[in-house]
Amino acid sequence: MRTAPLAVDGRPVATTVVADTYLARLRGMLGRTPLPEAMFLVPCASVHGVGMRTSLDVAFVAPDGEVLGTGVLRPYAFLGAPRGTRAVLEAPTGSFARWGLTTGARLARPDTSPLHA
């Protein structure tokens, strides 16, 4: 898996692990110690917490990088995505509050191209 810088509304906030293969998306954050700063799952339209021991912040992302919704994924729970979701960003709980990531924010690389393009 590769990594990419993450910017929220043009502000660099973290380095993400990009899960862009079936197996990488299937594993997600499961069994990672310590957790990465963030994980970007693309393409992805829903997430589950099966096997997880901790909750995660989750953002549902449109093709242009707009955050369509956010939530907290609890262990063994499932979160479906809003219509138009192309990717999902996961991070340790509390990360989104520190980064100012809310619905309507834009996720991008510092070079301004969409993270998932």
Results as ranks from 00 to 15, higher is better:
M1A: 15
R2Y: 11
T3P: 10
A4K: 07
L6V: 15
G10C: 10
P12Q: 08
P12D: 04
V13R: 03
V13I: 04
V13W: 01
A14S: 07
T15K: 09
V17R: 10
D20S: 12
T21H: 02
T21C: 04
Y22L: 13
Y22F: 15
Y22N: 01
A24E: 12
L26S: 06
R27T: 14
G28T: 08
M29V: 15
R32A: 14
P34L: 13
P34M: 09
L35E: 05
L35K: 02
E37H: 09
E37I: 12
A38C: 07
F40P: 00
P43M: 07
P43Q: 06
C44T: 06
V47G: 08
V47F: 05
H48D: 00
H48S: 07
G49C: 08
V50H: 02
R53V: 14
T54S: 14
T54G: 12
S55Q: 12
L56Q: 11
A59H: 01
A59I: 08
F60W: 01
V61D: 01
P63G: 13
G65T: 10
E66F: 00
E66P: 01
V67T: 07
L68T: 08
L68F: 05
T70K: 01
G71L: 06
L73F: 07
Y76W: 15
A77C: 09
A77F: 06
F78P: 00
F78S: 07
G80A: 15
A81Q: 02
A81I: 11
P82G: 10
P82N: 07
P82V: 12
R83I: 08
R83E: 12
R86K: 10
A87M: 02
A87C: 03
V88H: 02
V88W: 01
V88C: 02
E90M: 07
A91S: 08
A91Q: 03
P92C: 09
T93S: 15
G94H: 09
G94L: 05
G94R: 05
F96W: 01
A97I: 02
R98K: 14
G100D: 10
L101F: 05
L101E: 05
L101W: 05
T103H: 06
G104W: 05
G104L: 03
A105M: 05
L107E: 05
L107M: 03
P110V: 13
D111V: 13
T112V: 13
